[in-house]
């Protein structure tokens, strides 16, 4: 079944298959790693985890507060969908001040041939053409994918008030996914981050992008591009890799949310007993290396 999924069936099928696979492997994983020292072993009970983790917003917030944040994350997702239609890595963001959207951005790296044109840069370039820089001290960012190391540093230098994001970026996330640029010692004021708002939607947008590119470009044109190691598997873009900083508590392992397996959880749980069904993971585009996102 899984072998037929790649690039053919709808992404919803992929989600369901992934979810089923995730739960199965997750079950295996917890069976194998049920030792007291394994701090990555997620609590079996999702309800219990909701109480524990205040920063996993979709679980822990009061309904009114959650609705407030979800409203803006919907707008960010709309920007990401626009990026997808424009053949860009689907990452979108909005900046919000006093409950009002003051800027929108989407990834523009492919069209500009500039790997630094991330959604956050595009949005801030719009905002600061009308408003002073210090307005960012009272502004929150909602972005579908965790800010990368570059954007995390840019936001901190500008003095952003807070960052809310959808899925983690395991390749180059700067707010917990790989590094903790938002909270590391620095001459700039740290900012709080909250991840996991509509995380699955953010991941699925990324997956759609890769499937879409695969269909377009069946054969690599240049071998030279192959050595770039630009392959970015969509599954590894939503889970913190590093130890979360003490300042910010985050979900230790997104396998605990159960629905979608991460690449590392797949590898970890499948290593001993189960062969990883690679076909379930859409492979990265070969002919056109995808530029950075986030």
């Amino acid at each position: 079944m899984i072998g037929t999924l790649r690039g053919k069936e709808s992404w919803t099928t992929l989600v369901l298959a992934s979810a089923a696979l995730g739960l199965a492997l997750y079950y295996l994983h917890t069976q194998q790693s049920a030792t007291p020292t394994d701090d990555k072993s997620p609590p079996a009970d999702e309800e219990q985890r909701q109480d524990e983790d205040a920063h996993h917003i979709s679980n822990a917030m009061a309904p009114a507060e959650r609705a407030y944040h979800e409203r803006f994350m919907r707008e960010a997702i709309a920007m990401a969908e626009l990026a997808l239609k424009s053949d860009e890595t689907p990452v979108g963001c909005v900046f919000v001040k006093d409950g009002e959207i003051i800027g929108r951005g989407m990834n523009e790296t492919n069209r500009t041939l500039n790997g630094t044109r991330h959604a956050e840069f595009v949005a801030i370039a719009g905002i600061l053409s009308k408003r002073p820089i210090n307005i960012l001290n009272e502004t929150d960012l909602y972005v579908t994918v965790e800010p990368c190391v570059m954007c995390a540093s840019m936001l901190r230098q500008y003095g952003i008030r807070a960052v809310y994001f959808g899925c983690w970026n395991e390749r180059f996330g700067g707010t917990g996914g790989v590094l903790n640029i938002h909270s590391d010692p620095s001459v700039d004021k740290p900012y709080p981050v909250t991840g996991g708002i509509f995380r699955e939607e953010a991941i699925m947008l990324l997956r759609k992008f890769y499937v879409q590119e695969n269909e377009k470009a069946p054969e690599p044109k240049q071998k030279k591009t192959r050595e770039l190691k630009t392959e970015i598997l969509p599954m590894d873009v939503h889970q913190p890799k590093s130890t979360p900083s003490p300042a910010i508590r985050m979900p230790v392992n997104s396998a605990s949310t159960g629905s979608i397996p991460t690449l590392s959880s797949l590898a970890a749980s499948a290593a001993s007993a189960v062969a990883v069904p690679k076909a379930a993971i859409p492979s990265a585009p070969q002919s056109r290396p995808t530029t950075a996102r986030g």
Partner: peptide
């Protein structure tokens, strides 16, 4: 370069 620019250099390969 600062952290932001260091990562921009990395993103740009």
């Amino acid at each position: 370069p600062c952290v932001m620019c260091s990562m921009a250099i990395l993103h740009s390969r």
